[in-house]
């Protein structure tokens, strides 16, 4: 087709003017419906952007009073006593990150396995069932996960936590002070209400999201390459590891980051499970941890004036972190759609 050569020939008018090498600008007179649609989409896009900006601005403005009062100590103080100007996010941020890390390190293998099974291995009739089951998991409200974590998981996971502390206690993060494996009467309480339990609960909440993103990415691996791999004698695992996983790598990273973003902000389930402490607690199996969102949930009711400003500052920190994580995630997920990451 010669789409670019449809410009009218100047020679047809019989003049000798030089031919303009630039292609003609095409002005399509779009229909009214098109214009409304375009305007509408543009407007919603801008609206989303401005709402996000407004939330950030609001948090920043409300947080100014508290941030100005303590300055950089805000990042290094573990206590939370805003009205005597001793407060900071060192403890809550540590807890938030630890809970999110536990959640992600449990949910990623789970989600990857589930996604691979659904997209590659499960027979077609089972696939639909599994997809809707996973979606159902995502639809369960977080307070239900919180109740389940509090009433069931917390008691059931003590054995695993104790085992980890006994055999891997030499790794600092698994050490539990006050737990003596040789003492049969040692209280199991020291293994409850920890970042580990909270992380496991959150893992189950973020796994479905991660699973759907990954499944989407895996199913986009081109059929030609899959069959090529089989033709070269690859087993199913060989095909998955050489075609599906490289194609889906962007989706895996994006899904992981999306899950991380949600895990960082999870409030009510964490709030119900943990016992809040205001000290930097690195030991994930030990009782007591904290998170930014559960701090806000706990204290916003009692806070006034300056206390509220301090909570806004904590919220701002969480907002910024979540925003960074989600932007990274969406950038990676977008890049992967073209298959640019593929090594094939």
């Amino acid at each position: 087709m010669h789409a670019t050569n449809i410009a009218p020939e100047p020679a047809a008018q019989g003049t000798d003017a030089p031919v303009d090498p630039r292609p003609r600008v095409i002005r399509a007179s779009s229909a009214l419906a098109d214009r409304i649609f375009r305007g509408g989409s543009r407007l919603t896009g801008l609206l989303v952007f401005s709402i996000m900006g407004a939330i950030g601005l609001f948090l920043a403005l409300r947080a100014t009073e508290a941030l100005r009062a303590v300055g950089l100590d805000f990042l290094t103080t573990a206590e939370w006593q805003p009205d005597v100007h001793r407060f900071g996010i060192a403890a809550v941020l540590t807890g938030t990150v630890l809970i999110a890390l536990v959640a992600v390190s449990v949910s990623v293998p789970l989600a990857t396995g589930t996604a691979l099974f659904i997209s590659e291995i499960a027979p077609t009739w089972l696939r639909q069932w599994l997809v809707s089951l996973v979606d159902l998991m995502a639809a369960v409200p977080s307070v239900v996960y919180g109740l389940w974590g509090l009433v069931f998981l917390e008691g059931s996971v003590i054995g695993l936590a104790r085992w980890l502390a006994t055999w891997f206690g030499w790794i600092p993060i698994f050490r539990v002070e006050g737990a003596d494996p040789t003492d049969p009467l040692a209280s199991a309480s020291v293994f409850t209400a920890s970042a580990f339990v909270a992380g496991l609960t959150v893992a189950l909440m973020v796994a479905p999201i991660q699973c759907s993103v990954m499944r989407e990415a895996f199913s986009q691996a081109p059929a030609g390459e899959r069959e090529g791999a089989y033709a070269l004698g690859a087993t199913r695992w060989g095909m998955i590891s050489s075609v599906v996983l490289p194609f889906g790598r962007g989706g895996m990273i994006g899904g992981t980051m999306l899950g991380l973003g949600r895990a960082l902000g999870e409030t009510i389930a964490v709030y119900m499970v943990i016992s809040q402490v205001f000290e930097i607690q690195w030991h994930i199996l030990r009782v007591g941890t904290n998170s930014v969102s559960s701090l806000i949930a706990l204290r916003y009711g009692d806070a006034s004036g300056f206390g509220l400003s301090a909570l806004m500052a904590a919220g701002l920190a969480l907002f910024v972190i979540t925003l960074v994580v989600n932007f990274t995630a969406s950038t990676i997920a977008n890049r992967s759609r073209s298959g640019a990451q593929s090594e094939v």
């Binding site: 199991a188 309480s189 409850t192 209400a193 016992s275 402490v277 007591g288 009692d302």
Partner: peptide, 29 residues
Amino acid sequence: SFWPSFSGAISKSGDLGVASHVAQTYSEG
């Protein structure tokens, strides 16, 4: 109104939170 937290203590919100934590089978002691 805010009981200072100390090492070894578990903090829960509401009378119900405290009561349900104490009542768990793993909360012996």
